[in-house]
């Protein structure tokens, strides 16, 4: 028994820590899906856009990438607000296809814009964090960057949850997602509220982008990889609760690393999607869906 635990301690710890990163990758997608009823196919590309923004910021101020959050989050929020206010709000209520097409188009534009500016070279947000490990006694070595990812993700989601439960705007966003018409009758301008929701979601993409950039290498076209992770997190966690999305991320991360441990590294992605398939079969609304 102890030997099994000893053998599994590494994939379990790393899976949970990586799962935290998956949680922050999926949270923005989940919010927009739940609030605006819109599948944002450009979410992954927004994440990679943020990675590049951080890269640019670091050339001006050679600091730890985490400090570039101060610049990247506001910029991403503004980009998100503009996308919703100027593009997506125009086609709300006109069926499922127009918003999908716009988001898809946005994804292609972002990828090619990044390709044009930054060339297809592999990049990473270099920091000493990326290579350090923290020993937990002589029991376990934790990669520091995974731990930082997990903590930043957890803190972000806790702050987000506080925002949704404590502020007028947070409550108005939830009200608009419950009943748009009734929210308008309360004096809430739902289109502006949707734009703020998208700003917030893009802000979380900004956080995710910096963490992803610190943890892995990225190219202009890596966005869709993270889009698929975000999809997985949303499907496993279900809509309606931030904590559920975070837990969905943990399950996906755990499934991937345990799969890689038992079946070999080539099966890491596959085993994640097997869990996805199982959840879709037995609980299509997601494990932690509300309402």
């Amino acid at each position: 028994m102890l030997s099994i635990l000893n053998e599994l301690k590494v994939p379990i710890t790393n899976g949970l820590l990586l799962g935290g990163l998956y949680g922050i990758i999926g949270i923005g997608m989940s919010m927009i899906f739940g609030i605006v009823r819109l599948v944002n196919l450009a979410h992954g590309d927004l994440i990679i856009l943020a990675s590049y923004l951080s890269l640019v910021a670091m050339t001006f101020f050679p600091v730890n990438p985490l400090f570039t959050l101060i610049v990247v989050i506001p910029v991403m929020c503004i980009i998100g607000f503009i996308i919703q206010y100027c593009l997506l709000n125009r086609i709300l209520g006109k069926g499922m296809n127009p918003p999908l097409l716009i988001a898809f188009g946005l994804s292609i534009i972002l990828q090619n814009l990044l390709l044009l500016i930054f060339t297809p070279d592999a990049r990473t947000l270099l920091t000493s964090i990326s290579v350090k490990t923290i020993p937990l006694g002589n029991f376990l070595n934790i990669p520091l960057v995974y731990l930082v990812d997990f903590i930043v993700a957890l803190v972000s989601i806790a702050l987000l949850s506080r925002f949704f439960n404590r502020t007028y705007m947070g409550k108005a966003i939830r009200a608009a997602s419950d009943d748009e018409g009734a929210a308008q009758l309360m004096g809430i301008n739902t289109k502006t509220i949707y734009a703020f929701a998208m700003a917030l979601a893009s802000g979380t993409a900004g956080i995710a982008g910096i963490l992803v950039g610190m943890t892995f290498t990225f190219y202009p076209h890596t966005g869709p990889e993270y889009l698929i992770i975000a999809f997985g997190v949303v499907i496993i966690g279900g809509l309606g609760s931030l904590l559920g999305t975070f837990l969905g991320g943990l399950i996906l991360g755990l499934a991937q690393l345990l799969g890689a441990h038992f079946l070999g590294p080539g099966f890491q992605l596959l085993s994640g999607y097997l869990i996805l398939l199982i959840v879709l079969t037995f609980k299509p609304t997601g494990l932690f869906a509300k309402g």
């Binding site: 007028y168 409550k171 939830r174 419950d178 018409g181 009734a182 929210a183 809430i188 309402g291």
Partner: peptide, 19 residues
């Protein structure tokens, strides 16, 4: 009626004074 089902009673009332 169209109350907001996933908001509490107090939160519903707060939405009434959103302006």
């Amino acid at each position: 009626r169209r109350v907001f089902p996933r908001l509490t009673v107090l939160e519903n009332l707060e939405m009434g004074c959103y302006i």
